[in-house]
Nucleic acid binder design. Structure first.
Lengths: 255, 255
DNA sequence: CGAACAGTTGACACCGCTCAACGAACGTGG
DNA sequence: CCACGTTCGTTGAGCGGTGTCAACTGTTCG
């Protein structure tokens, strides 16, 4: 099966309306595949690039360092995302993209992508919408960083990632792979590792989520969404996943 | 003179490459004009809109309130900006847009804007790029909110607004109109009014900037940019303004 | 003139940071 | 398969940047 089917095509179907011809045109894109190790910088600030990078498998984050050497993570990406679609219209990048874990990537030349946009307005619209959703998520992070407490922010991030992974079927139950260290969570949340550690303990004590290394278990989605003030509309999904884990909960009750 | 010349056309010329035909096509857009009072909500969350709003004159901010009633300002807009270009591809908005002061606005129907994008790829590219720059600014705000101190954040915001106003010639010297209250600054910076007040005093004591009601005076741009860690690349301007106020400084030395 | 808003100042509390040490899990090579 | 280094996670103590609360001043405008 074409790797684009369960990544880019599936992703764009989540957020836009494509025709069969659009999908075929997407499948016809020529890809350059590459696998990179955890921690690899995929694209770095000020670099000039002529292709965009589709995340096929793994987990990616975008970040920037301050002059004092502190790191702020700006975004996370799940399989199916084009992690630097913005580079299509920028000469130089203003931040870095790195592989959080070992990743399978597929590169698409800008020229070819732009030609596709010109010949298929639907696809241009879908990709533009993708970059706008990116921006919508940024806005929500700004609100979280500026006006929400540590525990609210943490809950919000976990809600967002859970929903995005479920939307793409990368996660399918209340118990799934979330390959982030507390350090990475801290750098995304504008907190320190110590605080994140304590915050996660609080969330566990309250029976909301449990995290163990690379696994996350949602124990009480409604309550988690409640303290996060999470509503999925800002992800602009056409059919947001239900997030009803009651069946799982029974199945896992014995565990 | 067509109001689009000194707003949208000028703005897009700052960030993209247009032909004369592109400019003519932009000038031919049909506009609905409107003036709103300070504090007016221009578009609100969850609203469905079928036009985008060009800021002709005034000052606009975008914001969102948390469940606890705290406000976070997400973006500021200067004349020439389309303040809700993202709405072109979204059914529902995920945040609010409000007039910071009395504003002259011009509305453009989405249908007409999209037709223009289809017929003129250059304009589509320029507008897409506009939304990407919007996102780039969000990213920088995320870094500021997550990993920079109150004084650094404040300096950074002042640098950004100064540069954007100068790029559009809305401001032309070191002394210009910046119609923001300390309350609005606080809500943008994720601080409280009290802290902003003290931070501004510190900046003044150090001889960097002075703010008086609606006026801002840049006293030492290099030093201000230094503590903010400000570099203009993320604004993605084709020709960033020089920001050399040495002549002004002499002229204002007596004041 | 008076209400409403914007700005200023002081005292105090607290959330989250810093520093520091230790424990647990993992991976790699001998 | 163990030994060991490295990364990740955990815990405690103390500090500091911002927030909170509250009072007061200054400005604008009807």
């Amino acid at each position: 099966m074409n790797p684009l089917d369960r990544t880019l095509v599936q992703r764009l179907d989540l957020v836009a309306t494509l025709t069969d011809e659009d999908r075929d045109a997407l499948r016809a894109l020529s890809l350059t595949h590459k696998t990179v190790a955890a921690g690899t910088d995929i694209v770095v600030e000020n670099q000039e690039v002529h292709h965009s990078c589709l995340l096929v498998d793994g987990f990616v984050h975008r970040y920037r360092d301050t002059r004092e050497g502190k790191r702020q993570i700006i975004a996370f990406h799940v399989p199916g995302d084009i992690v630097d679609l913005h580079s299509l219209k920028f000469e130089k990048l203003d931040h870095n993209v790195a592989a959080t874990i070992r990743c399978d990537l597929a590169f698409i030349r800008h020229e070819e992508l732009w030609d596709l946009c010109m010949s298929r307005p639907n696809i241009a619209a879908a990709l533009w919408r993708e970059t706008l959703i990116d921006g919508s998520i940024f806005r929500r992070w700004i609100v979280a960083l500026g006006r929400m407490s540590g525990i609210q922010r943490t809950a919000h991030l976990l809600c967002e990632l859970t929903m995005r992974l479920h939307a793409m079927n990368t996660a399918q139950t209340q118990h799934f792979h979330l390959p982030l260290t507390q350090n990475e969570l801290a750098d995304a949340l504008g907190l320190t590792v110590v605080t994140v550690n304590r915050t996660l303990q609080t969330l566990k004590q309250r029976g909301l989520v449990e995290r163990n290394r690379t696994m996350l278990t949602i124990r009480n989605w409604p309550a988690l969404a409640q303290i996060a003030g999470f509503e999925a509309t800002y992800l602009h999904l056409r059919n947001p996943p239900a997030m009803d884990f009651s069946e799982d909960r029974q199945a896992n009750a014995s565990a």
